[in-house]
Amino acid sequence: MIKKIDNNKIGIIYFYIHFVVEVLSFYFLYSNYKSGIVWLIPLIYDSFAFVPQALIGYISDLRKDINIGLIGILLFFIGYIFFLYIDVSVLIPLFIICLGNACLHVSGAEATIKYGNGKLSNTAIFVAGGSFGVMVGRLLSDSLTFGSILFVPLVSMIPLIILTHEETKNLTGYTKYSFLKKNVNSYIAILIAFFVVIIRGYMGYGIPTSWNKTTQEMILLFTTMGIGKALGGILSDKFGIRKVAILSTLLSIPFLCCGDKLMLVSLFGICLFSMTMSITLGIILSVLKSKPGLSFGITTIGLFLGTVPIFFIKLTFIYNVIMIIVFSIISSILLGSILKGEK
């Protein structure tokens, strides 16, 4: 099949789609932040946007003719109509938007994985778009009163989703991901990747960042996270996944621990720490070769489980630092033990 989309462009197209998806999701979330069930809203959002991605991904893996991205756009459209124009409980648009979010994530993951042909750059660039979207969605919820304008970026995704689905539905590039050493047990590999994702999910919230107080600092934080996620895939393709996994995890420790009040130090650590995002997906893909959607969904379940503790417990600074050090070292050792050295 002749590719109409340049190989490097698929990541950028889904960077934009992921960006729009998170803008819409976080504009909705933060606009409802003051409602009566405020504490439950983010928990429900995390549950129903992150967790079902594995199941949706599995269905999409089996039924390649279904354009799961278009279903996601339709769900967002319905959710936003309820949110903006119909006086109903916030839960109705919340559930619909969550499922739309999940469908579009799966669509992006499958397209970039299939196009990647064993390389992580495209998927990493797609994943990075989310950080920028979360930031812009949060900022817009404070300043944008005419929410209907957000239908414009929503509609703008339709031609991109149709084009990329047609281009990628019959591709088999997902079978070329092979990042594990020989004879590594499949269950062990998945469990290690899952563990590392949970740790990263928790640390994303647990990193001490008392410097982060102004809007500009928040923008810098999310921008750095996005750059780190993209760099993880790009550098893995260039220098080898094992080197990047071990070095980024270990090097981030001093910067994260000492950056509580030093913004630049902290940002450098966050950039390094964010790099493992696509690496863990690469590990799972190396096992579940024919199931890119399910593989991606496993990482999002891990992210959900990593974020759950922050809803119930609040650790002190010193406990967070200890956890960062201990779990980063464990993650680094585990990743080093299963990833193969060559590119």
Partner: peptide, 14 residues
């Protein structure tokens, strides 16, 4: 999801 993952690994997802 756990069941599906186990099933896929057992079947050797290729």
């Amino acid at each position: 999801t756990t069941y599906l993952v186990i099933k896929e690994v057992r079947n050797g997802s290729k």
